[in-house]
Amino acid sequence: MSDSPAIAHGAADSAVHEHPPYQRHHFATMAQQNDATNFAMWLFLLTEIMFFGGLFTAYLIYRNWYYPAFVAGSHQLSIPLGGLNTLLLITSSFTMAMGVWCAETRRKSGLVLCLTLTFILGLGFLGIKTIEYSEKIEKHHVPGFHYSLQSFLDPASDPAAKAAGDKPMALDMARHTEVYFSLYFAMTGMHALHMIIGIGILGFMIFRARAGAYTTGHVTFVENFGLYWHFVDIIWIFLFPLLYLISRHQ
């Protein structure tokens, strides 16, 4: 692009300095570019809020309609595994925040370390999620054609239900546990999908960070990715109590 510096500096700022290579031609200053991309990222997160908002709405409605089914359904989830996942994700958020700090203070090896830790913690989260999913598949708790009501009609046959002290449910309410698991899989699945995308981008970033890409003072990409990662963390912060915890005492 052939924009002469005279044009770029026409009105916005009179300081005469060379553009850094990462400044796009249509921005007057670097600050304007950073502000714009940061704001764009926030707007994207708004769309994400609304995207998950639909699922949360569905959850709240059906929880009120089919309260006993949701209680029994949540007893099938493992709090230790869910809790461990929460720890992993919160810690990964911390390492991500530290990564941003390393980029800002131009610590290259620190940045690579933080990003790698975030990457590993994210993978750990997905690993545990896989364990949880496979358990559901074994018990036929995946909604669809092979959905089984065994654990809810006859809780004594199911260790998790037995441990929670579930009583046998009437057939029509037991059938509504399928709604619970539909939402469980939709919500955690969408969340996991976001994690997978995030981990993919993390891998790319580690690769670039090793080449010293983000420690030259231009940290917008790391910062904006950090926003995304923290957002995914926040979703989980709500999913964990809603799906695993709030019916535990019953």
Binding site: G54, Y62, G144, R175, E178, V179, S182, A186
Partner: peptide, 27 residues
């Protein structure tokens, strides 16, 4: 995005048969 999630749920319901909108399953 709300339309997007609604369509995702319809697609999931058509393919694997989750029960969010399906009245026979309580949706």
């Amino acid at each position: 995005p709300v339309l997007a999630i609604a369509i995702v749920l319809v697609a999931l319901e058509r393919t694997i048969g989750i029960g969010v909108f399906d009245p026979t399953k309580g949706g």
